[in-house]
């Protein structure tokens, strides 16, 4: 007599027999909503969705109540609301992405990345001119802002978590306050102090300074949260092995928190990559490629987009949409690279 061979099954998986009332309920809710919207003065997509929230909740609650009890009814109400909330986040995001690709793709060409707008008018045909100056400018400002803010932000977070000095609570308060300042204020601050009071000129570096003001608090706060997650055990173990505080932090704490710290840098870059307002005040907005980040007017992609939108002609608006698409692609590439870097094994 041979033993029967056990087959792996998932008894907890919902099959059609159990799920059909829910599926029927969902279809019924959509049909009912459609009927209500056609029969009443409620109009359009918005009316449809608002009605759907109410109808779906009531239908789901009713089905659960009939099949089980009151507790199940409350449970399905919350489930339906959570699903709808998720839908509300995904639908606008997806439609924004779709719209950017749809409108931006028309103006996309290789020539766009090899030329600038120095001799081209905004409403010249799309085969002329390009975005090179803005791409280079954006890379400069983001790179310089990152180089300036990451060390400052990281050291601030180390002060808050490792040194825990007397000023820690004050510094934490100011970092939080700083992360709330509107970006135009950061631009005005650099404009007033760095340019007017100290006599510096428009340049990519000046723009990067404004972005750094926005980036430092983001990096400092997220790094602090990440460093707080590193177990105190590891600090003690490092110190108990005869390490100084600096060597313990550099050899144990920072590597242990590495992937989280990279995420904090990504968040900082995400904060500033699309900023327009502070750059309007600090970069001058050149149309020609400027390879020197420390002097002369220069541009950035958000600046380029703003400039072309404000021209208002059909072709310039097309240029703006393509600029948005390029910015999105660059940010995506950058995120992918940093994600790959941080996905090492054996970390937190």
């Amino acid at each position: 007599m041979s033993a029967t061979v056990a087959q792996p099954i998932k008894p907890w998986r919902v099959n059609f027999k159990q799920a059909w009332p829910e599926i029927a309920g969902a279809i019924f809710a959509v049909v009912l909503t459609y009927a209500i919207v056609s029969a009443t003065p409620l109009k359009g997509k918005l009316g449809f969705f608002v009605t759907l929230i109410f109808v779906a909740t009531i239908v789901a609650a009713g089905i659960s109540w009939l099949r089980r009890d009151r507790k199940a009814a409350f449970n399905s109400v919350s489930t339906v609301l959570v699903y709808i909330a998720g839908l509300f986040v995904i639908v606008p995001l997806a439609s924004i992405l779709y719209e950017i690709v749809r409108r931006g793709i028309a103006g996309l060409s290789w020539g766009m990345f090899t030329t600038d707008m120095a001799v081209t008018a905004s409403d010249a045909p799309l085969s002329e001119g390009g975005i090179l100056h803005a791409v280079v400018g954006s890379l400069y400002v983001v790179l310089i802002a990152t180089i300036v803010s990451v060390p400052i932000g990281l050291l601030t977070s180390l002060y808050l978590t490792e040194i825990k000095g007397k000023a820690a609570s004050t510094i934490r308060f100011f970092v939080q306050a700083m992360s709330g300042i509107p970006s135009i204020v950061a631009g005005l601050f650099i404009y007033a102090i760095w340019m007017i009071a100290l006599g510096n000129q428009y340049s990519a570096f000046t723009g990067a300074m404004a972005l750094a003001i926005l980036m430092i608090p983001t990096v400092a706060r997220t790094s602090e949260e990440v460093l707080k997650l590193v177990p105190g055990d590891l600090r003690e173990a490092g110190l108990a092995l005869g390490g100084t505080q600096w060597r313990t932090v550099a050899m144990i704490i920072l590597p242990a928190a590495q992937s989280g710290l990279i995420t904090s840098v990504i968040l900082g870059i995400a904060r500033v990559a699309g900023e327009t307002a502070p750059l309007l005040l600090t970069m001058g907005g050149a149309d020609a490629l400027n390879l020197n980040p420390f002097s002369g007017y220069s541009s950035a992609i958000p600046f380029y987009v703003w400039k072309n939108f404000s021209m208002g002609t059909e072709l310039s608006i097309q240029r703006a949409w393509s600029g948005v698409l390029v910015l999105m692609i660059i940010v995506l590439i950058f995120f992918s690279i940093t994600r790959l870097l941080s996905n090492k094994k054996g970390r937190f």
């Binding site: 590891l234 173990a237 005869g242 100084t244 050899m251 144990i252 590597p255 970390r347």
Partner: peptide, 22 residues
């Protein structure tokens, strides 16, 4: 609680004291 350094291999863990104390 066992607390090996998570960012280090077994080998690096054993030798970590040397590096920490230089």
């Amino acid at each position: 609680k066992p607390n090996p350094f998570p960012s280090m291999t077994i080998k690096e863990n054993v030798l970590s004291g040397l590096k920490l104390a230089q």
